[in-house]
């Protein structure tokens, strides 16, 4: 699988850099597909999610309380944007402190589902982010990817292949 991190210009700001993922040279990011796929039926929730990400980038940073942590493996940073009990959608991300997030994809949260492992669409999106997070961490350890001097941007990004 190939993936590329791109910076979302309009959502990134002084408080956090917002990245999204393009998988296997597709035309759009996983976040675009999440928005597109759910806008018609869940317009209010999609608008609120979009605006939440914008506020994270421009006003508050990626505070821990805005996310549901431990969606992935311990310490891999994979989380979900905090969703209220009665909300229908879940969006997966990787959070790097308060300064950067990588938006993944998401799916509808079926009411009967307690864990993402129990729903195939959520499972697919969560597992994708877990793989990507692990690969980014490895490349940071190997110094292929680094943090910028101001600590807010990832440097050395390109199209990467996960075996």
């Amino acid at each position: 699988m190939k993936y590329e991190l791109v910076e979302l210009e309009t959502l990134s700001g002084n408080c956090a850099t917002i990245y999204a993922v393009i998988v296997d040279n597709e035309e759009s990011t996983l976040f675009d597909q999440f928005l597109q796929g759910h806008l018609a039926i869940f317009s209010k929730e999609i608008e609120e999610i979009y605006q939440t990400v914008s506020i994270i980038g421009h006003e508050t940073g990626a505070r821990q309380d805005f996310f549901k942590e431990r969606e992935g493996k311990p310490g891999d940073g994979v989380c979900a944007l905090y969703d209220k009990e009665n909300s229908s959608l879940r969006l997966y991300c990787i959070r790097y402190g308060t300064v950067a997030i990588v938006l993944g994809g998401g799916a509808v949260k079926p009411k009967a589902t307690r864990a993402w492992q129990d729903d195939p669409k959520l499972k697919h999106q969560a597992e994708l982010m877990i793989k990507i997070s692990a690969d980014i961490m490895k490349r940071i350890r190997d110094k292929e990817i680094n943090w910028s001097r101001d600590g807010r941007h990832l440097i050395g990004l390109g199209v990467f292949e996960i075996e």
Partner: peptide, 14 residues
């Protein structure tokens, strides 16, 4: 650095 990205859907949302 990552390449900058925008899309129709992101512009529509904005």
């Amino acid at each position: 650095m990552a390449r900058k990205y925008s899309s129709e859907i992101l512009n529509e949302m904005m």
